[in-house]
Design a protein around this nucleic acid. Structure first.
Lengths: 121, 121
DNA sequence: CAGAATCCTCATAGATACTG
DNA sequence: CAGTATCTATGAGGATTCTG
């Protein structure tokens, strides 16, 4: 099986530090949000994702999904139908991001609380 | 006390999803690596950090540190000496990133193993 | 419905040289 | 030693239009 080529930001990250690999894979805007929703919602269609992340332009969302697919995090299934249907789901590797998502989510909330504390104090 | 203004990527992330906040704060190249080393090494001087992340240009490293400082993750202490001495350490908020670093690090290793598996299989 | 093609703008980051 | 200033290049991401 022909594996997808590893994107160059990831190759760089691999040489620097394992923590940078996650940043390289998830660094694009919305990527982690997409992963989070796929973790929660299982399989989702393109339109579902667009509605879930309305701030992302369609072009950007598509690109992010393609990169996540290339990086082995997301699986893309195309149904040969009219009108077309495409479903996205997490690979095993992608499902392994659950801990990352949880840690990020928790810290994000701490950060929010921190900001609120600054304003209220 | 006058709080640093919240950088715009973070403001956007706050409106989208808590997981994006972490990405917004740590998204710059080397940032998570810096945090990881500060977690391990405690206080570090600029030169220490430069040597720890030799791939980063000095200008970039300085900017990243300033942003981390602005975001409340890193504390910067300047000693009024000649030659100058500047020490960086994590704030409480920054120390809270330990779980994120651990999760990222673990997943980065899984990712490496995944790539190796592809080549070996 | 899903996405490709085109155009545009701004932020990021590197290299280099200089300063207190 | 730590940092700033300047210049440059790359690319990420948005808006819009078009197609099977």
């Amino acid at each position: 099986m022909e594996a997808d080529p590893v994107r160059s930001p990831i190759r760089v990250a691999l040489e620097v530090c394992p923590v940078e690999v996650g940043i390289a894979v998830l660094g694009g805007t919305w990527k982690l949000t997409v992963v989070k929703h796929l973790l929660e919602g299982g399989t989702m269609r393109s339109g579902d994702l667009s509605r879930t992340v309305p701030q992302a332009s369609q072009r950007t969302l598509t690109r992010q999904l393609r990169e996540l697919e290339q990086d082995g995090v997301v699986h893309r299934r195309v149904y040969p139908e009219v009108p077309p249907r495409v479903e996205y789901s997490l690979t095993e590797l992608g499902a392994g991001l659950a801990d990352v998502v949880a840690a990020m989510n928790a810290w994000g909330r701490v950060y929010e609380a921190h900001l609120d504390g600054q304003n209220t104090a």
